[in-house]
Design a protein around this nucleic acid. Structure first.
Lengths: 366, 366
DNA sequence: CTGAAAGCGCTTACAG
DNA sequence: CTGAAAGCGCTTACAG
């Protein structure tokens, strides 16, 4: 394939159209200072030669590459969110005539290499950083990059960013569980060392805040970290199922993990929501079919808005460096959350478990 | 952020190192014809100025961009597969020192635009096409691209490609269902007009072949097309559940769709695998927790191998233009497939349904 | 409205 | 082993 014919250059087009290279350049970029006749001849010649602009050549003189880079964790970490956000970015950028360069970082070695070499440097007009918890040095390194940086799916104070209010969203979801009467609410998240990823920290904060607000005591053992990879969630659920006091609800960091929790609970014969309520985060396309209660956010919008911020910064480099967009979330109650089983309250109020003090009428929240 | 300091050029490095630009260029590329001393001074100067190479400038003279483009459908179409394959590609390319340019096409308009403008043209050294069913014109258009094309997740005869043997894989899976005693096996797939995507055609062929081989009659109504988007799978399952003769098993195009089928069946109170077996395709990370029987394939390997083919073609442009890699699949029996209910055979052998002729001892396959 | 010329930052013969 | 020079394919003042 790939007939190795020489690609036509502007000089070829110019010759064929009977004009100078300058005129070809102007005509093709749609500048007004070209006569209709010349423009016509140029366009025809370009089409006939199937001319394509060499961005290398033009960016050498303009200093603009026409490319935007994005740095992401391996997409298999959160396929739906990252994949959809990436698609949104691509869509937004392509409307702005910008190409998308993707840097995927799947482990610490690649991460170190990225920040060491900064390959995006001089090869992109801007960088989007998605779902990365950066260290202070990494952040400073990016400041030296020489191109604007936009953070997506994370709130970077003082920098351009697009994000959801994870604290408020998690708070709202957990409050729903409390309103249903739950008093022993676990939180399942990815292990911190695997937490390449995003807003999990804030969701934990929101969870904690909701418990505190309701006067529920804090219990470390209810926050479980699942290792990334097969079996991680099963082991984490195992931890919860072997606690002295069984939680009656779990708030899970993402829908994808929540689906897995549902599968594990089913295989253990634990009825959802009869014995345990499960609440996710995302409103993944499968959530509806799974009847999963969840907190919806739009990954697509996150990507689009990040692309939009990039365009806006490129167009207006001296505007507010901390411009940002907050993507809304909304809680969607479905079938996996319900009032806790009657005996759950009985147990905790009856015995000397650590939860005795928190026991209460399960309906008081209503 | 983005202190707009001028980026250091090779001339700056040369001045600082006290050598010529040529020597800087040679030293930085690791050419052997540089004295250790000069190499040393250049490397230090480059580091101190945090020099980064302008690919635009070097590609202008070498004719190589150092970039490989990939064309994909919107990742939300098959988040796990496309996201993981993309990650594998990025990983493979980055080892080869190549950047990844992503073109996502989410609808017909974008598709037409891509093939009309061929933005990858002159801006990438190669193009990977993933999970796209191309028309004849599109394929020819790509031949005019002037760069090598590698097809991923699809078998393109005569072109470089990496793929799984979908026919054999589907055949094997469906044979398993037949061996279990199923005689009324449905197949659920994405609606054809939404089939931006891959190997679905071949899976249908494998399904058909297995039925034929087992002497089962062909029944069009057992092949259901789900529209893309929310509710599509539910409606498709609804079709199956209202057939005169209920199928006892469904082979689903992908695990992600199969999960949805499981959710819908559960919400309808139909026991899996008691009343209906469900077989997926992919071995999605969730499949284990969902206890879904499936046919495993490695999206990661598909991406890696595609990147490998690109490297090999770039290194050896005159090798076999049809070089290809076949990624293995393997059938994984889990809990969603089992023998059909006893009465299923009874019904079909008893009455004048279209399936009467095919009725048989459900165990004969063993 | 148009063209000739300079120059963007590299790599690559070529000469030494 | 090293450097001066040409040139990759564009865009952009500048002059007309």
């Amino acid at each position: 394939m790939a007939r190795e014919q020489r690609q036509a250059t502007m000089a070829d087009v110019a010759r064929k159209a009977g004009v100078s290279v300058s005129t070809v350049s102007r005509a093709l970029r749609g500048l007004p200072t070209v006569s209709p006749d010349a423009r016509d001849r140029v366009e025809r010649a370009a089409r006939e030669l199937s001319f394509a602009l060499s961005r290398s050549a033009s960016s050498l003189v303009t200093g603009k590459t026409g490319r935007v880079a994005v740095l992401m964790p391996g997409l298999e970490r959160a396929p739906w969110f990252l994949g959809t956000a990436l698609t949104g970015m691509a869509s937004g950028l392509s409307e702005a005539g910008l190409d998308l360069l993707v840097y995927v970082v799947t482990n610490e070695a690649e991460r170190a290499e990225f920040f060491d070499r900064l390959p995006a440097r001089r090869n992109a007009d801007a960088l989007m950083v998605t779902s990365f918890i950066l260290t202070e040095e990494e952040r400073e390194r990016l400041d030296d990059l020489g191109v604007p940086v936009v953070f997506a799916s994370q709130h970077a104070p003082g920098r351009a960013s697009v994000y959801v209010d994870d604290v408020a969203a998690a708070h709202q979801g957990v409050r729903h569980l409390i309103n249903l009467g739950h008093r022993h609410i676990a939180h399942l998240r990815l292990a911190v060392e695997d937490s390449f990823v995003w807003s999990a920290q804030d969701r934990l904060v929101g969870y904690r805040r909701a418990l505190k607000e309701a006067g529920l005591p804090w219990d470390d053992s209810l926050v479980v970290h699942a290792e990334y990879g097969r079996g991680g969630v099963r082991r984490a659920v195992g931890w919860l199922l072997s606690l002295p006091q069984l939680p009656t609800a779990v708030f899970v960091e993402s829908d994808e993990m929540a689906f897995e929790v549902l599968g594990v609970l089913r295989s253990c014969g634990i009825d959802v929501p009869g014995r345990m309520s499960v609440l996710g985060f995302d409103d993944h396309p499968l959530a509806e079919a799974m009847d999963l209660s969840t907190i919806a956010q739009s990954a697509w919008d996150t990507g689009r808005e990040a692309a939009g911020l990039v365009s806006s910064i490129l167009a207006e480099p001296c505007g507010d460096p901390a411009r940002h967009v907050v993507i809304p979330t909304r809680f969607i109650p479905r079938g996996t959350t319900a009032a806790p089983p009657q005996d759950a309250a009985a147990v905790s109020s009856g015995g000397g478990t650590q939860w005795g003090a928190a026991s209460a009428d399960p309906t008081e929240g209503f």
